[in-house]
Each structure stands twice: as C-alpha cells, then as structure tokens.
Design a protein around this nucleic acid. Structure first.
Lengths: 163, 163
DNA sequence: TGTAGTGGCATGAAAACCCATTGTATCCCC
DNA sequence: GGGGATACAATGGGTTTTCATGCCACTACA
C-alpha cells in the first residue's frame, strides 16, 4: 500500500442549488495521476460528521487488502461474517460519482445528508484520502485542532464570509 | 484475482407482478466492462438470507480459484469431497439470467423464494459481487451494521415508503 | 381459446452534458 | 515594477439523454 501521489491542501467551494461542487483542481490532479478514472468515491467518515473521499484505485487497493486478510485467517463463521460486513461497508455504503469536464460532481442526496453538507464544502487533503466537511460543523467540532480551524476561518474570510 | 471494475453503491427497485426488476444501471455497466455478456448469475448467499449475484466472468474466476485450492491441498478424500460440494454449490445451485434491452431481469421463482424477494429489491455492491435483499429482512437482520440499515431506510424514504 | 410467460414500446422523472460567464492568478511585455 | 493580456478554475443556467417502470402486443402451450 504505497500510493505515490498524496492528497494535500485545503479549499472551500460552493454547493449550488442542484447540489453540485467543483472538486478542487489540486485534488483532481492527484486522482488522475493515481489512475485514469475521472471519478471519486464518497463515504460517510467513520468517526467525523463529514464525508471521506478517494479515487477508485484506492478503493480497489482497500478491497485487495480485505481479501488477503480473509485468506490468511481461519475461515470460521465469525471471520466470514466480519469480512462480509466490512465489504458491505466498503462498497455498499459508498457511492462513486464522476466529475465532468469542468471538474464538478453532484452530491448524491444520501451522501449530502450523511455528510451534513449544505451550501459550502470544505475539502481537506489527508494523504491517501481527503475529507469533505460542512465548514460550520468543522468549526464546532471539539475534536478538531484549533490550527485547523484557523485554516477554515481563513477560507471563509477569503470569501467574505464571517464564520 | 484482481478484477479491475468493482460493484459499488446501492439502489432499491420495484419487482413487478411478473417478477421483473431493473438491474441498476451502475451495476450493469460494471458487468459489461468485465465481459461482454448481458447476463447475471444468481445464487443463494452463503451467510445471509439474501441473494448473491455476479457476472459470468466472475463465475469463471471463482471456478479457477476452487481448482487451485484443490491442487494446493492434499488430495485426501475429505478435501476431494469438500471440493465437489463447493463446486456443486458454485454451479448447480446458481441460475444465469439475461437482462433485456431495458436492463430488466426476471427472477426465476426458485431464486425469488430462496432470496425471500417480494415486491422490492435492495441492490448492494460488495466489490467483486453484489447482493440482492428484501429490504424488510435487511432491516431485521441483526448481523447488518446500523449504518447500512440507514442506507436502506433512506432508499425507502426516497420512494415515500415508511419502513 | 384462455392464460402465462416474453419481448418491445412509451412515459415521466432524474441525471449527465454542454455552453457561457465570472473571477483570479500568472505571465509577458513594456 | 506596472499594466495588460492570458489561461485556468469555479459557478450558473439550460438542454439532451438515460433510467426505471408501466403498458401493450405477441407467442406458446394447455
């Protein structure tokens, strides 16, 4: 599991009435260097009230990892069940969305709700994946370090928005 | 075993009086990218009260995998028997059904019964394969993680159905 | 001749696509 | 170093295409 290109940086983009957002160009360039797909995979983040996102190539890697884990371990009913559940979470609980020539995706309504996304989307690179937050929730979350919140505040200011 | 295209996402479709369902387009596109068949293979899921489904190309892969497993292990009578049983399950206990130009399959009555499918079919991608559930049973199953049930509830809501 | 299974067609809703415009950062020339 | 021009990113709107699904017509078998 060594992906050469990593997601990094931050951006704050608008979500329009149709639920569309521009995926920041610097994230798109990573996706396209990792593979040749022009799509991103969306999932509910497992510990934050936000979305987790990555490219299809990363999803495939994750799957291969799970498979190897299963083959190594005993094929006991418990191990089987655990495998089934993780596989379901990894694939059924995610949605793959393409972005168009101008780099925009439309949020599937379910994901938009699960990620609490309203009219602004904060993109944060985290290496192998990136996150998409509602900036308001980001500032409220007590698990987020103050320095990161400063970034969010800065991005808001940039747009002439208070907080 | 490295399939490039993976089944992912979820959908809830209606089963009509004749037992026909639309296979979601995003699953069909994976099937057609994996091979050129416009058919799906149905089987009773080995640990859930639901159906497991995949494309013919994957069935071939599965067969090859079983063969390799047999070659690796001792060809003891027990191993032989185990192989025979699994092979039977993989092929005799499955049904291959074509989908028409509008993407619809007809559930073979036996499969419909084995999978407990009534008038709604919940499709769930799981990477190499996908599952087809009766949404009511899905919500009742205690092995299904709550996050996934939320997805099912959301899909029902989308259709204006309670639960 | 009725009935059941199959295949194709029609429709309404939703999603993908395309084009235009704005804003911003960059580059080049003066 | 300043000013204009250029390229790319983000966003708004409208139009076309696709999807799911109901409906009807045809065939086969009883």
């Amino acid at each position: 599991m060594a992906l050469e290109h990593l997601f990094q940086g931050s951006a704050l983009n608008a979500v329009d009435a149709k639920g569309r957002v521009s995926v920041p160009a610097f994230l798109r360039s990573v996706i396209e260097r990792r593979g040749d797909a022009k799509t991103i995979v969306l999932a509910k983040h497992e510990s934050f009230p936000a979305l987790s996102a990555y490219d299809p190539a990363y999803a495939a890697l994750k799957h291969a990892k799970l498979e190897r884990l299963l083959e190594k371990e005993e094929t006991s009913p418990e191990a089987q069940l655990e495998y089934q559940q993780r596989n379901l979470m990894a694939f059924a609980a995610t949605e793959e969305v393409p972005y168009d020539s101008s780099g925009r995706i439309v949020f599937p309504p379910m994901m938009r709700r699960k990620g609490n996304i309203e009219d602004l989307a904060l993109f944060l690179g985290t290496g192998e994946t990136f996150q998409i937050w509602n900036p308001t929730l980001f500032l409220k979350d007590r698990h987020v370090p103050e320095d990161l919140k400063d970034i969010c505040r800065y991005r808001l200011e940039e747009r002439g928005l208070s907080a």
